[in-house]
Amino acid sequence: MTETEPRVLVVDDAATVRLYHTKLLTDAGFQVAEAANGLEAVEAALGTPFDLFVVDVNMPKMNGYACVETLRSETVGTAAPVVMISTEDRPGDADRAYAAGANLYVVKPISADRLARIARMLTAGRSVAA
């Protein structure tokens, strides 16, 4: 790993999903950290700068919408793009994500190629790792 690789925080309460997204992003050249819920994600962001957040919606302690709203209200998370990836596909789910501050809403499952392309697009020219 080099210091210029964009840093991504994968936030999902399902360990298998976190491992899957972490592997895909690591294989694509990103530095990846994990959080099991929104509260852990906010705590991680307060201690470490990230270039991208990949956030699930349904999680204990703090759901994805509240997590994104909190990140957007904190100086540390205001600039980094957020991709919300969820099984939720009802009318209004994407609108709620965008209202919370997400840059993109994707319904699970997401292919390795698509996740890598989205992450590269949203982190192009960014790297807070130093």
Rank of each mutant, 00 (worst) to 15 (best):
D56A: 08
T26V: 11
Q31S: 13
R90M: 11
V32I: 06
R114S: 14
D93T: 07
N37I: 06
R117Q: 15
D56Q: 05
V54D: 01
G125K: 08
N37P: 00
P49S: 14
P49V: 10
A124T: 14
L46E: 14
I118Q: 09
T26N: 09
A14S: 14
A119C: 09
G101W: 02
T70F: 08
E74T: 03
L9D: 07
P60D: 05
Y98V: 02
I85E: 00
D51C: 10
T87F: 07
V57T: 10
T123I: 08
C67T: 15
G47A: 15
V32L: 07
R96K: 13
E5I: 01
A33L: 13
A112W: 01
V8A: 09
V68N: 04
T26L: 03
D51Q: 08
A45H: 06
R120S: 13
C67F: 02
N37K: 02
D93Y: 10
V106Q: 07
T78K: 15
E34T: 14
E3C: 07
V17M: 12
P81Q: 12
K61W: 08
T22N: 12
A100G: 02
A80T: 02
A45V: 06
T26C: 02
V42H: 03
M59N: 04
L115D: 01
M62I: 05
A94Q: 05
G64S: 10
N103S: 15
V68T: 11
N103V: 09
E34L: 14
L115Q: 02
P91C: 06
A15C: 11
Q31N: 11
L24P: 00
